[in-house]
Computed example of a mutant assay.
Amino acid sequence: MSRLWFTLTGGGKSLILFRTTTSGGIARVPQKAISMNPCPNNSVTLKSLSSNEPSLPPSIFLGTVSTSNGWWERTKGRATVKVSGHPPRSLFLIPVVLLLLLWLPGTLFSAQITLQSDEQFRFAEQAMEKGDYLRAVFEFERFLRFFPEDKNVPRARLLIARCYLKAKDYESARKTLHETLGVYQGTLPGGKALFLMGESYYEQGLYEEAARYFKGVLGAYDDPELRNRATYRLGWIQMQTGQWQEASESFKTIGAGSPLFLNAQDLSFKSLGGEQLPYKDPTTAGILSVVPGLGHVYCERYKDGLVAFLLNGLFIWAAIESIQQDQEVLGAILGFIELGFYSGTIYSAVNVAHKHNRKLKDDFLQGLPDAVDLNFFATKEGHLGLALKFTF
């Protein structure tokens, strides 16, 4: 057995330098190594770089080239392997080339990726504008990781919280805002974070908790516009909870220089209309339900009132008839069932009155414009862009 160096040629050009071991058996040649444009019938010529042996038996490939579909085996007929000549001169150039590669500067073969802070920030904003909020969160967090000293870091934190609010992930939003408050307590970004904390509870309908945060903004921060927005949102909470007079007074205190001023003045007048809504008194509905169904009629639920009247009347009649027929046990059972229906009718009338009032109020509020624009909490500011370069 002898080891020889070969250059596999096909289609008119050299493809690869590899080593074979001559032995008996079938010639195995990697299919991909034959040629990208194989010559006719996949014929190959192997040129020896060693001695002037007249010929070689079939060889087994020992190189490192592999293909996805394994080895190509020529099992029918054996390829003719010709050995001739001496090692090509190019073989002696390999050490010289390797030395040159070592001496050349590394940057000649390096690749650079430059990441600009303003470009990364804008990319995150674009994801947010497209409604891809979770992707926007990822990109803003990448911005914070790469550019922790950039002037837009406070804004990025607030935008992360806004993305979570848009995605209705209120717990994640509040977690981000708590972290922001810890870093920027007493500054404008901290005040905005406190406002957004209240906004997260407001959007969930937790008005008492939301009011606590908006009042916290008024008590701790002097920025005029931030205070105007907190007061404005408190006015909305007062309308949501039926405090129409208080809401009107809150809207009147919005400063004349605020973008909210005109809308607030309009709401100051319109909010009083909430007191004129045709509410139904739940207590009255319950009292009227002493006559089954009458409380529902009071709440304008005529069909429900008719059903309640007939159902209760039927059970009352059946109970009386049973007693008159000396079936006291059956009469007692029917009377007990009727007592349950009768109590349920009263409770239902009270509940219907509350639902009627809530729907009336919600429809009224939906007709009023809410001018709070959360873009205020991501106001664009001029800044110097930073850049990071990654070299490979």
Rank of each mutant, 00 (worst) to 15 (best):
A167N: 15
V83W: 15
V329D: 11
F92W: 12
W71Y: 09
M1C: 11
E338Q: 13
R229F: 12
Y184D: 01
M128T: 12
L91Y: 04
L267G: 01
L158Q: 02
E179P: 10
P148I: 01
V83R: 14
V329I: 04
N351H: 05
F18K: 14
L62S: 15
M36T: 15
R28P: 01
A173Y: 10
A378C: 11
F315C: 08
A349W: 12
K76W: 06
L330V: 02
R358N: 11
L277M: 05
V153W: 09
L365Q: 03
V290T: 10
Q31M: 13
F309A: 02
N152M: 03
N263Q: 05
P105V: 02
P224R: 15
N357F: 01
S51F: 09
D370R: 02
V44F: 10
P95G: 10
F214A: 00
G286C: 08
V65P: 08
K13W: 06
G340S: 09
G273A: 03
I16W: 03
A156R: 10
E53L: 15
L98Y: 05
E129L: 15
K380T: 09
E338K: 11
L272G: 04
E73F: 04
S248F: 00
P224H: 12
R74N: 11
S322H: 01
I26L: 14
T45E: 12
P105L: 04
G331I: 06
G205Y: 06
E199Q: 11
A27Y: 15
F377Q: 13
I323E: 15
A220S: 03
G313H: 01
P87Y: 06
A220C: 00
L306F: 05
G24I: 14
T231V: 10
T20L: 08
P38A: 13
L272T: 06
G255F: 14
E171V: 08
K380A: 10
V96M: 00
G12V: 05
R227D: 07
T345P: 11
T7S: 06
P278C: 10
A111C: 10
P292D: 00
Q325M: 09
Y184N: 03
L165G: 02
L56Q: 12
L365P: 04
A318V: 05
S268Q: 07
V183P: 05
E209W: 00
Q31R: 15
S117Y: 01
Q31I: 13
T9F: 11
Q112F: 03
S14M: 08
S50W: 08
A193V: 12
L339K: 07
S250P: 01
Q31D: 12
S271M: 03
C299W: 03
F341I: 08
N228L: 05
N69D: 11
R227T: 07
V329E: 09
M128S: 15
A27G: 13
S90K: 08
R145C: 09
V307W: 01
L294Y: 01
W317I: 11
M128K: 13
E53C: 13
E129I: 07
M1Y: 12
F341C: 09
E208I: 06
W5F: 14
R19V: 15
V352C: 07
P88G: 07
V291G: 09
P58S: 15
S268D: 01
E208K: 04
Q325D: 13
K270P: 00
E246A: 08
S250A: 09
N52D: 12
E381Q: 13
P95W: 04
G293R: 10
V29R: 03
F392P: 00
W72I: 10
L8K: 14
Q245C: 00
